[in-house]
Design a protein around this nucleic acid. Structure first.
Length: 547
RNA sequence: GCCCGCGUAGCUCAGUGGAUAGAGCAUUGGGUUUCUAACCCAUGUGUCGAAGGUUCGAAUCCUUCCGCGGGUGCCA
């Protein structure tokens, strides 16, 4: 909340003190104001003077002193003290009263945290999970589901209009093989036959299930079985996702692109731009022309289409038929090789590179104790999403997967996760929430009422620390929006909860003998509660009133 | 081979140009007649994979190397 203000203040004073410095260059050169490290007494610091030393041909300490003279003369109310330290740091301490008044707003009105952000005019479509409907979601899909849903939630909180989409691959080879595998189970008497492409318990279940409602005289049996099979799988996928609190606005089917003749349209457009060529009996997209290592096939020799082709069509639909300006895709690391060519294809169709954002979430290795579990849809080796969510719980599951950067290949130890009951940080956060709720109830019983005339007085180190942490909330959100990586919120929330637990332990909040102090503390605790509650809401984790 | 990502405490991971590198778990020892002990307080650990380089300043940027994962199909 303060960083931007201090930065503006510094840049203003820089422009007044050293007129010949180009502010734009300075701003683009990196952050100007940062949180002070714990070892330094102040709250925020700037290393601007150090950076300017070369340019201005002056010792940094001199620049810092010159700037601080101006800064001190024009010091806004929210700053208490400005000091210059050793090589040339300019440090700022924030006024306690200013912190207190900001906390009061947060305490009285949950929406204060949200109001900090402007409503954005832009609509962003975000696609995630999009697993093929040929099998149940497995534990690896949890990561994408959690990442995408939390990111979307934060972006929406920030003010964007978000549309969550699941792309259903319901055409192509995999789907046909899936249908055939089920049909074989229905028609063959030997249910143990393993020659089919898709194996596993769930195929047999599907076969038994479908058999009941199937008309065996149907003209195209495979087609019918496939259709029913996919629908059943989709129902199960939706059900699994809802266990993790994940919901989609749109389930877009690949088959739609065929019905709408989008693929034809795409190839026509690409052809007009001379990115299509026929060779070796296939139709190619000339991505080499745009800098890729090789060209890519769109229509195979047998006249069927590649995944890449319908993927272009899918994106064409997003940008040119449904008219989204900005699209985010979250893909698993196994699709990382598709990024370049997909972006190139879209660029050749006229989409600005920055408007198609593809984020990769790294692989999840599943461990059971010391044994690595391999997951394969076709072999039927499974640890399903619902199995894990039911054992570990949605909250702990979400927190665990959300707490890691998407760039990290993480190891998910199923045994550990199951045993991770009270040692899991999420319970610690939820406990802080439950404690606050109970505390505020007790305050009500003790007839301590807070309203807009109440006042917060910060008079302990712990309160000050909590207050400053709460006011970091907007910057934490901004970082997520900038990087499109929501894991920062888990740490933030944990830190806040930790500070609160420590505070709670160290002093009595409801003091029957002093109503004024109790009122201030209760109001203060309301600001903590509202912030923790907001974080839990953004992580889509429940906020229990009792534990 | 080439392309992408990663390598930070015993373990799981934050930190991607600034000040003495952090958190959770694990370890060890203490704490409750009290608003919830699923809590608190104390406890120590790092060749930031290695070597060079850029910089006033590097875990962070560049180069090379080592290790791990993924990709490199007219599979998805």
């Amino acid at each position: 909340m303060y960083i931007q203000k201090i930065q503006d203040f510094i840049l203003y004073s820089l422009s007044k003190t050293y007129q010949n410095v180009d502010l734009k260059t300075i701003e683009n050169d990196g952050p100007i104001v940062q949180k002070s490290p714990d070892s330094i007494k102040s709250d925020f610091g700037s290393s601007l003077a150090l950076r300017l030393a070369k340019l201005l041909k002056k010792p940094p300490i001199e620049i810092a002193n010159n700037l601080s003279t101006f800064l001190n003369k024009n010091k806004p109310d929210f700053i208490d003290e400005i000091t210059v330290l050793k090589p040339g740091y300019i440090n700022f301490s924030i006024n306690k009263k200013d912190i207190a008044s900001k906390l009061k707003n947060i305490a009285l009105e949950v929406n204060t945290l949200k109001k900090h952000f402007d409503k954005q005019s832009e609509t962003i479509q975000i696609e995630f999970v999009s697993a093929n409907p040929t099998g149940p979601l497995h534990v690896g899909h949890i990561r994408g589901a959690v990442y995408g849903s939390a990111l979307s939630k934060v972006l929406s909180f920030y003010g964007y209009n978000m549309k969550n989409e699941y792309y259903v691959n319901d055409a192509g080879n995999q789907i046909t093989e899936f249908g055939e595998s089920i049909l074989n189970k229905i028609l063959k008497s030997n249910k143990d036959d393993t020659s089919d492409s898709y194996k596993g318990e769930y195929i047999l279940d599907l076969a038994n299930d479908i058999q009941k409602e199937l008309n065996l005289n149907s003209k195209n049996l495979t087609k019918e079985v496939t259709k029913i099979g996919i629908n059943k799988m989709l129902t199960s996928i939706k059900n699994d996702l809802s266990k993790l609190n994940v919901k989609f606005d749109e389930w877009f089917h690949e088959s739609q692109l065929f019905k709408d003749k989008t693929l034809d349209e795409v190839i026509k457009k690409l052809n007009e731009k001379e990115f299509i060529s026929q060779k070796e009996g296939a139709t190619w997209f000339l991505s080499k022309k745009l800098g890729d290592d090789r060209d890519n096939v769109l229509i195979k020799k047998d006249s069927s289409h590649t995944y890449f082709f319908s993927d272009i069509a899918n994106h064409y639909n997003k940008f040119f038929i449904r008219n989204f300006n900005k699209v985010i895709n979250i893909w698993g690391a196994d699709h990382q090789g598709h990024i370049k060519r997909t972006k190139l294809a879209m660029e050749s169709l006229g989409v600005e590179s920055e408007n198609l954002i593809i984020k990769i979430s790294q692989m999840v290795t599943i461990k059971k104790g010391t044994e690595i579990v391999k997951i394969s849809k076709r072999s039927g080796e499974y640890v399903t999403l619902s199995e894990i969510v039911e054992e570990v719980g949605s909250d702990a599951c979400r927190y665990f997967f959300l707490s890691k950067s998407p760039d990290t290949q993480l190891t998910f130890d199923i045994e550990l996760a199951k045993s991770q009951n009270s040692s899991n940080p999420i319970f610690y956060i939820q406990y802080a929430h439950a404690r606050l709720i109970k505390l505020l109830e007790s305050a009500k019983k003790a007839k301590i009422e807070v309203n807009k005339d109440s006042k917060i007085t910060i008079d302990s180190e712990k309160e000050l620390e909590i207050g400053k942490k709460i006011l970091e909330f907007p910057e934490m959100i901004e970082q997520i929006v900038k990087e499109l990586e929501p894991h920062h919120i888990t740490r933030y929330c944990l830190e806040l909860a930790s500070l609160f637990h420590s505070y709670y332990q160290s002093e009595k909040i409801i003091d029957d003998s002093d109503n004024e102090i109790s009122e201030s503390k209760i109001l203060f605790c309301n600001s903590v509660l509202n912030t923790i509650r907001q974080c839990l809401d953004l992580m889509m984790i429940s906020a229990p009133k009792k534990m």
